[in-house]
Amino acid sequence: MEPIIATQDLEKVYRIGRVSIPALRGVSLTVEEGEFVAVMGPSGCGKSTLLHVLGGLTRPTSGKVLVDGNDLFALSDAERTRFRRHKIGFVFQRFNLLPTLTARDNILLAQHIQGDGCNPHRFETVTNMLGIADKLAQRPNELSGGEQQRVAIARAAICEPKILMADEPTGNLDSESSAVVLNMMRSVNQEFRQTILMITHNPEAAAVADRIIEMRDGQIISK
C-alpha cells in the first residue's frame, strides 16, 4: 500500500531581505495510512515548517510532497485549498478557535466550509468521544485550555479528513489536560483510522505515537 504522506528532498528557505534561512534541508519521509507519528525536535529545527508544507499551507522551495497519492504542489492554489479541506484537519498549539463562535459553531464551521452540511450522527459521535457534549454552548473564553483543544480536535476531525496534523497540541496545556488531549487524539486515531502527524518537543507527548521522527537543523536525524 502506498504511504499516505511521502516527501522527497524537501527544502524550504525563508528569505528575509538578503538573508536566507534554511528551515528544511532535504527532508524525505513517509507516513503510512492510520499511523500516529510524532515529529520531535528542539525549537527552530523546522518541525512547524514541515507541518505547514505537508498541510499545503506553504510551498516548499524545492522537493516533492505526495499526500494520498496527490502531488500537493502540482495542484493550483484553489485545488490545493479544496484538497486540504477534504483530506487534512489541523490542530494548533493555540487552539485557534474563533472567539465569536460557540464550541458547537466552531465545529460546525468546518462542515460549513466543506459544504457537505452537518452530519448530526458524526457530530454527536465526535463530541461524545471527546467529552465536550456539555460544553457546546460555550464560547472559547468560557472553556479551559484542555476543553478548547478538544473542541479544536473535534473541529479537525468532524469532516473525517484522512490526516490530522497537530502542531504542539499540548504546548499550552498543563500535564493533566495534556494527558487528556493526547488520549483523545489516540482515540481519534484508533476509532476513526485517521492518520495523525503530531509536532511536539515534549518526549512524553511523543511517546503516545506509534513512531517518532526526530529533527534537528531542518533535517531528519532518526525515523
Binding site: 498541510g55 499551507l57 492554489d77 485549498t81 486540504r84 479541506r85 466543506q114
Partner: peptide, 16 residues
C-alpha cells in the same frame, strides 16, 4: 487576520 488564517487552514477558499 488570525481568524482568516484559521478559516484558510480549514480549507476556506478565497471566494469563501
Amino acid at each position: 487576520t488570525r481568524e482568516i488564517g484559521i478559516l484558510k487552514s480549514l480549507g476556506a477558499t478565497k471566494g469563501y
